[in-house]
Nucleic acid binder design. Structure first.
Lengths: 200, 200
DNA sequence: ACCTGAACACCGTTCAAGT
DNA sequence: ACCTGAACACCGTTCAAGT
């Protein structure tokens, strides 16, 4: 209210639209990011947004891209791919958890809401870890699918009665940690079998 | 069209509402199951449906329950829990794949769209396989999350250009098979470590 | 180039009324 | 008990028009 006059001064831009969308997503969840609510936040008509963004799908894709940039990059460390992957997936989970409903949307997209280059980067990580190209892609998709799946399960949960209860968010973390550890153990097993043909 | 007169004869019932919803979900995906489309299919006013079902959430929950009943039950076979789990998860994937968008909905529910009793049955399977109670619940949730996650990734995909291409459905199966194998390998690893304390 | 205003085609759902 | 009709409060989006 106090800043609405100031906000009106600066011209609308793609960046401001995305930034406002992220703020809305954090506070009300992605369901709260409607074109009308977004426009109100920007002190503008709903249709003004369409000048900077083709449609809502493109907008959410931009939001997803922007959120992922804030997450820690996945890169092979000295400690080995297992701990690097573990740290990255848990950090990714924590970052995305701040935007309720975003994963529910991303999991419905072909490349799980990532850009192609970012998706390829994940696959490269597994190649460097010793996975043959095809398995590397499958492994990365496998890990991402679980993380987004888990976030989807929690998304609608903490909006209702669970947030008041308090202990369900602890349970949520247990689920992720268990899943990530199981994923790593599983991929380790797949690497032992699958890479023989390539590393002989 | 030809059967609309006949359909009008039989009184509307909860069963008929659910059955028609399932048919619509198979043909047009869950997005096509609107109260209005459903009512049209039943030769009835949209509000007539509300007499037999509280709201759309309850309706979809009933559809999910009904679809899961058609899937093969998860039970420990002679061949060991690994193959039993593998067969069940792949069969579950195939069944749910017939209802595009259903998993995208189920993955947003607390118990992943299953009834509590059906959820407990999955956990019991892992207990019988040798997992301690807490790990058994986590393991079942882990497996279900991936299956629904994978189906969500494919849901929007085969609706657009991918179905025409034809080879993306093959890729989809590869992803599931890889994931299921990795899950089993991972859980096998977790069982080796985690069960020591309980089986000593 | 950038934004507004009015309107369209959808949703799920409530409420009062009919039989 | 079972269903209809009209209406409400939302969506995303198109289209023509303003500056």
């Amino acid at each position: 209210m106090a800043t609405s006059a100031a906000r009106r001064q600066e011209p609308l831009s793609r960046q401001r639209v995305v930034a406002a969308s992220m703020e809305l997503a954090r506070e009300r969840g992605l369901d709260g990011v409607t074109m009308r609510a977004l426009a109100a936040e920007l002190d503008v008509t709903p249709m003004a947004v369409y000048y900077h963004v083709r449609n809502k799908d493109e907008l959410v894709a931009l939001v997803a891209e922007s959120v992922l940039e804030d997450a820690s990059p996945l890169s092979l460390a000295d400690a080995g791919w297992e701990t690097a992957l573990r740290d990255h997936l848990l950090a990714l989970w924590e970052t995305l958890a701040k935007y309720p409903g975003l994963s529910s949307y991303m999991i419905n997209l072909p490349t799980l809401g990532t850009t192609e280059s970012s998706y390829a980067k994940g696959a490269r990580f597994f190649e460097e870890a010793g996975f043959p190209p095809r398995l590397a892609k499958l492994a990365w998709s496998f890990a991402l699918t679980f993380i987004h799946g888990r976030l989807s399960v929690d998304a609608k949960l903490d909006r209702s009665a669970a947030r008041a209860a308090g202990l369900d968010t602890i349970a949520a973390r247990e689920h992720v940690v268990f899943g990530v550890d199981a994923i790593i153990a599983g991929l380790k097993g797949m690497l032992g079998e699958g890479s023989d043909a390539d590393h002989a």
